[in-house]
Computed example of a mutant assay.
Amino acid sequence: MEKLFDVVFEDADLLVINKPAGLVCHPTKGDQYSSLISRTRLYASEQFTPYIVNRLDRETSGIVVVAKNAATAGELGKKWEARAVRKEYLAIVHGDVIEDHGVIHAPLGKDESSRVVVKDCVRPDGSPAQTEWFVERRVKNELGSFSLLRVVPLSGRKHQIRIHLQSIGHPIVGDKLYGGDEDCYLALVENRLTEEQRRKLILPQQALHAEKVQFTFRGAEKSFSAEPEEWFVSFAAGG
C-alpha cells in the first residue's frame, strides 16, 4: 500500500499532517490517493470524519491541521478566519536578499492580463495584504545565488507569499505561476512540461514549506512543526 502521509500529531480531536509537495488538498480525479482529503478518509477508516482546517497549494508542503469531528472543525475554522493563528513558512527564493528582515505591504487582486484564471497580482485597488520575512541563510551554488527565508503571512490572501516575494524581485524557486513564465504552470496543468522548462525551474516543486502553526485550542497552547522534504533541505544547505 502507498504511504498516505506523515503524521505529526494526533489525539481525539486533531490530526496534524506533514503534507508532501505535489499533493492537492481536495480531489481533482477519482484516485483515492490523489488528494489529501481522500487519503485522510482512508486513514480514518470510518473511525472519524476528517475536516481539513487549513489548505495548502498543491506544490506547497508542510503542516495541515485536520479536525476529527464537526465541533473541532467549527472551533478551529473560526480561529483561522479571525487570524488567531501564527503561521511560519520556509521559502527558497532567487537572488541574494540584501536586508535581513522586512515587511511587504502590497494589496492583491486578480491579474486580468494573465491567461491563468487563478492568478493574482499586486494592484493598488486590491485587498490589503502584509507579509513579514527574515533571511535564514544565503546560498550560492553552480546555478546561482539564492536565499532561504522564514516567512510570516500577516494576512491571508490567495497566493500571498508567492506574489509578495515575486513583487520584490525574489520569486520562489520552482514556482511555475509566479516565477516569471506562467506557461510553465499551463504546461504542468496540460501535462506538457518540457525538460527545458524543468531545468529552468531548477527544483521539481515550488520551494515553499509550511513549517509551523501555533494557536490556542480549548485553553491550551498548540504548536506544531514539520521539516521540509529532502530535496528542499539539500538545496537550502547549498547542495
Rank of each mutant, 00 (worst) to 15 (best):
R198L: 08
V173A: 06
F217V: 00
R218G: 05
E221G: 12
A220G: 14
P204T: 09
E182N: 06
E221Y: 13
R192V: 07
I172E: 10
T194G: 01
K222C: 15
F215G: 00
E196C: 13
L208M: 07
T194I: 04
E182F: 03
Y185F: 11
E211Y: 10
A207S: 11
H209P: 02
K176R: 14
Q214A: 10
L201T: 01
E211G: 03
L186S: 07
L186R: 00
F217Q: 01
L203T: 15
P204Q: 03
G180F: 09
K176I: 04
Q214E: 11
T216V: 15
H209I: 06
E190M: 03
A207I: 06
V213P: 00
Q206K: 06
I172T: 08
R199K: 12
G180Q: 09
L203A: 14
C184N: 14
R218P: 01
Q205C: 10
K200Q: 14
L186W: 01
K200T: 13
I202R: 09
E182A: 01
E221N: 12
G174Y: 07
F217C: 01
K212P: 06
E196H: 08
E196N: 03
V173Q: 08
K200E: 15
R192A: 02
L177G: 03
D175T: 09
F217S: 06
T216D: 13
Y185Q: 00
K200N: 13
Q214N: 08
E196V: 11
E190F: 01
N191S: 12
Q214R: 11
A220L: 15
D181G: 04
Q206E: 03
K176Q: 11
T194M: 04
E211V: 08
Y178V: 03
E190Q: 12
F215I: 01
K222D: 06
N191R: 14
I202G: 02
L201Q: 02
L193N: 00
E195K: 13
R192Q: 08
V173W: 08
K176C: 12
L188V: 13
V173M: 09
L203Q: 14
V213M: 10
A187S: 11
K212M: 15
Q206D: 01
C184W: 05
F215C: 00
K212G: 07
P204A: 08
V173S: 04
I202A: 07
D181V: 09
T194E: 04
E182W: 05
L208N: 01
A210D: 00
G180A: 10
D175K: 11
E211Q: 15
Y185D: 05
L177I: 05
